[in-house]
Simulated scan of single mutants.
Amino acid sequence: MNTALILSALPAHYGHGPGWFILIPIFWILLIGLIIFAARRRHWQQAPAGAESVLRERYARGEIDETEYRQRLEVLRTKLK
Rank of each mutant, 00 (worst) to 15 (best):
T3F: 15
L55G: 01
L31S: 04
I26N: 10
A60Y: 02
A4Q: 14
Y14E: 13
S8H: 09
L30Q: 05
L5R: 09
H16C: 04
P11A: 10
A47K: 06
Q71D: 13
L55W: 01
V54Y: 04
V54N: 01
L55Y: 00
I35Y: 01
G17R: 00
V75Y: 03
M1H: 05
L80V: 12
R70C: 05
Q46E: 11
L76Q: 03
S8C: 02
H13S: 10
A60E: 07
S8A: 12
R56Q: 07
A4S: 11
A9E: 00
L80E: 12
E74C: 04
R56W: 03
G62N: 08
A12P: 10
I64E: 02
H13W: 11
T3A: 14
W44E: 11
H13M: 08
G62W: 02
T3L: 10
L34R: 06
L31I: 14
I26H: 05
T78Y: 01
P18T: 13
I36Y: 15
H16P: 00
I32P: 06
E52D: 12
V75S: 04
E68W: 04
T3Q: 09
T67L: 15
V54C: 04
L23H: 06
G15W: 11
P18F: 15
F27G: 13
F37N: 14
G15C: 13
R77L: 12
L55V: 00
I6F: 01
R70E: 14
L31D: 01
E74D: 09
R42H: 11
T78C: 02
P25S: 06
N2L: 13
R72T: 02
A49S: 02
I22Y: 08
P18H: 12
R56L: 09
A38F: 11
Y69S: 00
R42D: 06
F37M: 05
A60P: 01
A12G: 04
E66P: 10
L7I: 12
L31M: 06
E52Y: 09
S53C: 06
Q45A: 13
L7D: 15
V54L: 07
E66G: 13
G62M: 01
F37D: 10
G17L: 08
L34E: 13
H16R: 04
G33R: 01
R56F: 00
S8E: 14
H43C: 11
V54K: 00
I22F: 06
L34M: 15
L10F: 07
R58G: 02
Y69I: 01
T3V: 12
E68Q: 08
L10V: 05
A51G: 05
R61H: 09
I64A: 03
S53M: 13
L73A: 04
I32M: 12
A47H: 02
Q71E: 12
L23P: 02
A51E: 02
L76F: 02
L76A: 02
E74V: 05
I6E: 04
R58F: 03
W44P: 00
P25F: 08
G19C: 13
E74H: 07
A39G: 09
V54E: 08
I26P: 00
S8L: 08
R72K: 14
R70W: 14
L23G: 05
T67M: 15
Q46C: 10
T3C: 06
H43T: 15
K79G: 11
R77P: 09
Y69A: 00
E63G: 03
W20Y: 01
G17N: 09
E63K: 06
